[in-house]
Amino acid sequence: MGVVIDAHLVVRRGAFTLDLALTAAPGEVVALLGPNGAGKTTALRALAGLTPLSEGHLHVDGEPWHDRPAERRAVGVVFQDLLLFPHLSALENVAFGPRCQGVRRREARRLAAEWLDRVGLADQAARRPRTLSGGQAQRVALARALAVRPRLLLLDEPLSALDAHTRLTVRAGLRRHLAAFDGVAVLVTHDALDAMALADRLVVIEDGAVVQEGTPAHVARHPRTDYVARLVGLNLYRGTARGHSVALPGDTVTFNAAEALDGEVFLAFPPSAVALFRTRPDGSPRNLWEATVGGIEPHADQIRIHLEGPVPAAADVTPAALAELRLTEGDRVWAAVKAAETHAYPA
């Protein structure tokens, strides 16, 4: 399949510059992932035609879109706050797009009813947006965006306004609709789980530039920035590898990694791979360092301990282990990681 979107988006606003190259194939779901202020929403607005490009281009199906206003782009947008028209019923909201495309009223209403049925809201057609629940409103917004038969579907934090339970069901529904959608979907989120669950490919942006790109599985195992590492729940370091041995800067600690590499590498391991000891354990000095307990907090059914010192790290221990160690903030501990759980990859 050919590339359906070929974009180079440059938007300058004051001191901030967004510079993002993006390509996507038909049917692909791309997640733009990044911290607040990274430029995700700006990128989305640029794709929609709501924010003009300072430079660059946007081609969709080979057609130049960059000089078209929003109303002449075949986009469907699900906004973060949904922005359902408050004075129109759910049905009229969904029929709005087809009506603007010149579909006659009766036909537009039939189409809208069909879309509402598809998102499971056939019986809510006459309701005003403010009488709908969060999950229902979200689905009306999706139906409204899809009803214009877009080539490009844009979703801005589509699940962020929902409570945890609704989120689960809406996410599953959204996944189904994205799978059935034959154009390109671009999803903006700062939630790793949403991105991993919905996207075929992640594009991580920080400060307006791409810092990492790849399949969710690859990004989850090979974070390349602290932000991504935090997002996927890994401890991440940069070091120099010689074979299986990886030295951190300043030779503070030398790790044994599962992979044999040479040169600059990233080194990652999960917090659950870290074992803590009150006294220095016997055996190899590898993968072992001394640290200060900086913070202790519950984390799912584990206890997360933040270690400070030359090798800052997060460690997950069981409540029982914590009780045995009798740890409090400021304590000195020894931390060790198994080589088999320590992964190195080229920087």
Partner: peptide, 9 residues
């Protein structure tokens, strides 16, 4: 903005 993305002049 929302109206514009839906094709409204």
């Amino acid at each position: 903005d929302a109206a514009a993305t839906l094709g409204a002049s």
